[in-house]
Amino acid sequence: MDGLVFDIAHLFAGGLVLVSFMMLYQDRLYALLNIFALHAIVLALSVGWQAYIQGAPHLYITTAIALLFKGIVIPVALHRIIQRLGIHREIETVVGIGMTMLAGIGLVALSMVVMLRVTADADRLAREDVALALSVVLLGLLMMVTRRNAVSQVVGFMSLENGLILAATGAKGMPLVVEISVAFSVLIAFIVIGIFLFRIRERFDTVDIHALDRFQGDRG
């Protein structure tokens, strides 16, 4: 039984890393949002499983938030925004897809090597979870640096946050922080969508960060 418990947890956490990879090669915003919704759903499954095996009912709240808020509300809202802004064209990436994928593989290998080595004493489940969570975090970071578009940067940040939640739930019995970090991801999403995108839209006819980059450093 213990083996099965571990395998299922491992499956979900590994699935999250895979979905992160899928996000890396999306070149259209709508597709990216769909994959992000999938990311959130896999996270919800993983957290739900953790809640079940740890016997920690408060984690079901995190599961519900991941499922409903990140899996449905945010993607739908972003869909709307993209529609209204008329920016459903291709995403310009800074680096080519191939290079990004290679870098992603490198980052996953790095996090495995680092985390598995230093967590030798920790229990098996937490160990794998933290290593996979670090991969998701690093892939989210990679996505943020390889995208120029504000919407996809936000998506990258939210996937990074998903990785953090995976780590926090994997650390058995971690108090308080699960709920709080979820509340904060909600807050961040609100701030980003509500204020930045609308303001940027209001002032400039683009949500492309690069178009805002007219002044770099000092203005003469």
Partner: peptide, 25 residues
């Protein structure tokens, strides 16, 4: 809400969030 202020805020937000995410980890 000027052009420069928004860009500065955005940059701060993105980099600050990445920093804060690493700190949480």
């Amino acid at each position: 809400r000027t052009h420069e202020a928004l860009e500065a805020a955005w940059k701060y937000f993105i980099l600050g969030s990445v920093g804060i995410a690493l700190a949480l980890f």
